[in-house]
Every structure is written in structure tokens, then in C-alpha cells.
């Protein structure tokens, strides 16, 4: 049976990168005594799929991974066992069983919501609510994206599904699919260039609030959290 695990990540563990979080979960699942499925051969691996890598330094309230288990004692038992094996800062928020037709976590990702907050000692751009409104009101939001091979001119506008601001924070819901992923820092860069200021990535604490999959039909987008496609067990 495949299960989807939702976890949050706060505190000092924000400095643990994606690959190390994968290693962390492999060991945590063993400590928790979960009857996880392994590949066969001389170096067996757990069958595991992570949704979307989280940048180093970011917090999250909505991270996901799928694993396959041979047996279990129900949803709550699995949540409790895993939470017993976590370090402070990482909390198992939910686990659901996936149907046979559900895609894996990585392939399922369509969008992600982020909160951006200014850290202590850094200046919030003045009139944030208005400026963000104006920024989003542009016809297109062009950025230059540096890839390994070339530089790309890119319009971010179609990938921004929602953006709103308070006096000192921004929330944005953006494309997080493998083909069109928008990194929040890329959008911030564009925003700072719009307000005519230098962007300092250290100024802002980014929290991923949720990771979404698209269950819409006929090209109509319908975003639901990644654990909404599973069931209790």
C-alpha cells in the first residue's frame, strides 16, 4: 500500500537541504519501525517519492512524501510512530492512503503557496499592499532566468495564481509543477526590481504553506492539497 505523509518543517532544521531530508526520512522510517517496502538487490532502497524540494532556509507547513508499506496498524499508529522518531522542528501532520491510480508525490505537484515575511532588522517596502497590487496588475512580469546552458527571458505572470499582501507580508500561490516551477525568490527579485530596490534574499523568511495537486478536468484548474487525494486507513 502506498501512503502519503505530510510534514511541517520549522526552526533550525530549515538549514537541512533536500537530499539530507530524504536521508533523514529514510532513517526515521526505520527508527519508527514502519514496515516499509524495499527494492531488492545488494543495496536495497526504500520506495520513496518526495513532492517538491524545499529551498535551504525555508520553513514549511506542507511538505509531502510517498512511501510504500507492506503492513500497518492504521493511520494514527503510523503518525504516532513517525512523530516519535522526529527531531524537534519536523512534525508529521497527516498520513493518507493512496489509491492505485494516484500519481506519485513528485509527479502530482501542480502548485504551492508561500508566505513571505521580512525578518527582524530588515525594512519592509513601504505601502506593501498597494505596491504588490500594482506589481501583480502588470500585463506580464518578465524575469531573466539563469540556467546551466543559457539565460532565458521568462514571463512569470501566467504561473502566478494568486498574490496578496498585508502591511508586512506577502502570500502567493504559484505554479510548482516540474515544467513551470516558480521559485519564490525569483518572483521576489522581479518584485524588488519593480519597486526599484536591491533584493537581499536574506531579508525574507519564506514559508511554504501548502503543496497542491490539480484535480481539475478539461483544462480547468482545481487545486487541492496533496493529501486531499488520499483516504484514511
Amino acid at each position: 500500500m502506498r501512503v502519503r505523509i505530510k510534514f511541517s518543517k520549522h526552526g533550525v532544521v530549515k538549514f537541512i537541504g533536500h537530499l539530507d531530508i530524504m536521508r533523514y526520512f529514510q532513517k526515521a522510517i526505520r527508527r519508527a519501525g514502519i514496515d516499509v517496502t524495499y527494492t531488492t538487490g545488494f543495496s536495497p532502497h526504500q520506495v520513496m517519492s518526495f513532492a517538491a524540494p524545499l529551498g535551504v532556509g525555508h520553513y514549511s507547513n506542507g511538505e509531502y512524501l510517498d512511501i510504500e508499506v507492506n503492513s500497518h496498524n492504521g493511520r494514527q499508529d503510523m503518525i504516532d510512530r513517525l512523530n516519535g522518531a522526529m527531531v524537534p522542528g519536523i512534525v508529521i501532520e497527516n498520513i493518507v492512503a493512496l489509491g492505485d491510480n494516484a500519481g506519485n508525490a513528485m509527479a502530482s505537484v501542480a502548485a504551492a503557496g508561500y508566505t513571505l515575511e521580512w525578518k527582524d532588522g530588515y525594512e519592509v517596502p513601504s505601502n506593501l499592499e498597494e505596491v504588490v497590487f500594482e506589481f501583480f496588475g502588470q500585463e506580464c512580469i518578465m524575469v531573466t532566468k539563469q540556467t546551466k546552458k543559457s539565460t532565458l527571458e521568462l514571463d512569470l505572470k501566467p504561473g502566478i495564481y494568486e498574490i496578496e499582501a498585508t502591511a508586512d507580508s506577502i502570500y502567493m500561490l504559484v505554479d510548482a509543477s516540474s515544467s513551470g516551477n516558480i521559485k519564490p525568490t525569483l518572483l521576489l527579485e522581479a518584485f524588488y526590481s519593480f519597486v526599484g530596490k536591491e533584493f537581499d534574499p536574506l531579508a525574507i523568511q519564506i514559508t511554504r504553506e501548502e503543496t497542491y495537486t490539480d484535480i481539475g478536468k478539461n483544462g480547468k484548474r482545481e487545486l487541492v492539497p496533496l493529501d486531499a487525494v488520499g483516504e484514511d486507513f
Partner: peptide
């Protein structure tokens, strides 16, 4: 959790290689 004390600031930890070397908090 957000208040866990670190000797190094975010600014420093974000600019050094492998910040996880300096944050402790490991299992066990």
C-alpha cells in the same frame, strides 16, 4: 521551535557551506 537559539545568524548560516555542520539538533 522558531526560538531555538543558534550561535550563528541566519545571514552567516546561509552563506557558509553545509550550515548543518553548526546547528546541532541531530537525532540522539
Amino acid at each position: 521551535m522558531r526560538d531555538y537559539k543558534l550561535a550563528l545568524s541566519d545571514e552567516i548560516l546561509m552563506q557558509v557551506e553545509k550550515p548543518a555542520r553548526y546547528i546541532g539538533n541531530e537525532v540522539n
